[in-house]
């Protein structure tokens, strides 16, 4: 590139100050474009929350032997999420680095959940199942909250770390109630608040 002794101004149409101002304005606009992620939090939050309470009612209150039948809704939830995700990806107009990081984070957590279910089935070790599930909720929601700069999710995630530690002292039956509380504070409440924030900013 050639060099000169004078900064280019009038001949190039706009000044270096205007260039900097334009760059800042565009970067700010791009920074605000993150997809609405509340569907996943609300869908999985409500689904697992209701499953936990339903299993508790079937197992503890009604003493129904096939109480674990409620968890067959998980693969159905997986299919619903996959269809929703596919449809959203076709509508996507911009993919931010935050969106991409969130995709990788939740893909990793999804794999960890699947593997944990397999480990629990293979070793018949359900005693502390929800301790580990809540730990995964904590990692997912805390990191998501940090990436989205959304405090309710970060706080929900931090509280879940505490609940995971508390959960280990309770039997499976009461772990179901602790897990439903964990989902309420880290998925459902922040999910509704995130949806509101997204709709206000739209």
């Amino acid at each position: 590139m050639s060099a000169s002794n004078q900064p280019p101004k009038a001949d190039m149409g706009f000044s270096p100050e205007e260039s900097i101002s334009l760059i800042q304005s565009m970067i700010t606009q791009a920074r605000g474009t993150v997809a609405d992620n509340s569907f996943y939090l609300l869908f999985w939050g409500w689904l697992v929350f209701l499953c936990c309470l339903a299993e508790f009612a079937l197992k503890v209150l009604l003493q129904y032997p096939n109480h674990s039948v409620v968890w067959w809704s998980m693969p159905v939830g997986g299919v619903v999420t996959a269809i929703y995700s596919f449809r959203q990806s076709r509508k996507l107009r911009v993919l931010s680095f935050v969106d991409q990081a969130l995709d990788f984070l939740w893909a990793g957590i999804g794999i960890a959940f699947g593997l944990l279910v397999y480990i629990n089935i293979a070793s018949n070790a359900w005693t502390n199942a929800f301790t580990y599930y809540i730990l995964l909720y904590a990692i997912g929601t805390f990191v998501t909250g940090r990436l989205l700069r959304f405090k309710p999710l970060m706080i929900g995630g931090l509280l879940n770390f505490i609940l995971a530690g508390v959960c280990v002292h309770f039997s499976y039956d009461y772990q179901l109630l602790i897990a439903s509380l964990a989902l309420l504070i880290s998925y459902i409440i922040p999910g509704h608040l995130l949806r509101n924030r997204y709709r206000q900013n739209r």
Binding site: F14, S19, L22, M26, V94, L95, Q100
Partner: peptide, 18 residues
């Protein structure tokens, strides 16, 4: 150093694709 091209580049520098 052209307003529209610089605006496009400034937008794209902050996202993966658009």
């Amino acid at each position: 150093h052209s307003q529209l091209r610089l605006a496009v580049m400034s937008l794209l520098i902050g996202v993966k694709e658009a």
